[in-house]
Design a binder for these strands. Structure first.
Lengths: 172, 172
DNA sequence: AAGTAAATAGAGGTGTACCTCTTAATACAA
DNA sequence: TTGTATTAAGAGGTACACCTCTATTTACTT
């Protein structure tokens, strides 16, 4: 990054701040971007009637197999009680199955049903498009850096917000 | 950006993807980052019992004066019915005042009360800290570019998600 | 002036995303 | 082994963030 490029960036940035002081607040931009991604996801996958969080939950179950609620929470970075609200909705549509654990009777295990597996396979391409569209306005040669910066922020603050997620294993 | 730097970025990125495929999904990272910012905001401003959205709404009213619900919605990029839920909460705490418009009897005008103004002034420094902390893990020399990329994405997709916000005037 | 379209707001519904309090079961420790 | 701490889950509460449907008022059009 040379000085000329840096100056250009700072000029463009201060022009943006003149358009709206909201644009100077990271928290606002992130909230809007979250709305935008949800909108794009919904646009691409409307016919399936599945939300981004529901999709994350189902793909995590597909990858890791049968799990308890707490593990699901860690896999997808979503608060335990939020997970507990999502699961019954998917279960009532026959996309998940639940059973009591035999080893530990506190635990209820969840797994993806055949119907659920079929659904996420059908959705896969559309979901990828939603993710791609979310960042496709960033010049192609800057996209990798942008993703890396997002990852840095998320990993550095994984303990914030009462929904840390497990980085130890591979998730979806 | 030279080739060596670019290679380093791509290496670090693929290492991250190995840690978790979730990290390759912009939508996931944005959701987590939104959770993280809200967590930091809450941490900094807990004593005031105000959410990020409530703060945005109050500062918008402070900057632009008395407005109807629809205008508030455009100023802060929040769906009209969501605005309609936030307003009564703030009104019941005496932070806002509402009255029927005399020119157009469909319209209900909202404005910040003296108590509301006092509150946002007291919160200002803490809120700035929450925003700063949200991105302070990005190296200082890359922060401007990161902000610019967020702004590009938000502006390019301002029509997505049923909560576009007005870029014409200065907001908060 | 009368009829239609548009705008503003409200009511009621769904789905995250967090909180606290409670209950049941397990693990640990004196 | 008996009491204590921990863990998993559920119940109930608050606050966004969207949706649709409805009622009222205003604007537009013939």
């Amino acid at each position: 990054m040379n000085t000329t490029q840096d100056d250009e960036i700072k000029t463009e940035l201060s022009l943006a701040f003149d358009r709206s002081t909201l644009l100077s607040r990271p928290g606002f931009l992130i909230r809007r971007l979250h709305q935008i991604h949800c909108g794009l996801f919904l646009e691409e996958t409307r016919e399936f009637n599945i939300t981004p969080v529901q999709y994350s939950l189902m793909t995590a179950l597909n990858r890791h197999g049968e799990m308890d609620q707490k593990s699901v929470s860690l896999k997808i970075g979503l608060e335990r009680t939020s997970v507990a609200e999502v699961i019954p909705r998917l279960e009532s549509r026959g996309l998940l199955q639940r059973r009591q654990s035999t080893e530990d009777r506190r635990v209820k295990l969840v797994k993806l049903s055949r119907k659920g597996l079929y659904l996420i396979k059908k959705m896969e391409e559309r979901v990828q498009r939603a993710h791609d569209r979310t960042i496709d306005k960033i010049p192609q040669d800057q996209r990798a850096l942008f993703m890396l910066q997002l990852i840095r922020l998320v990993e550095a603050n994984n303990d914030v917000g009462c929904a840390p997620f497990s980085l130890e294993c591979t998730d979806d």
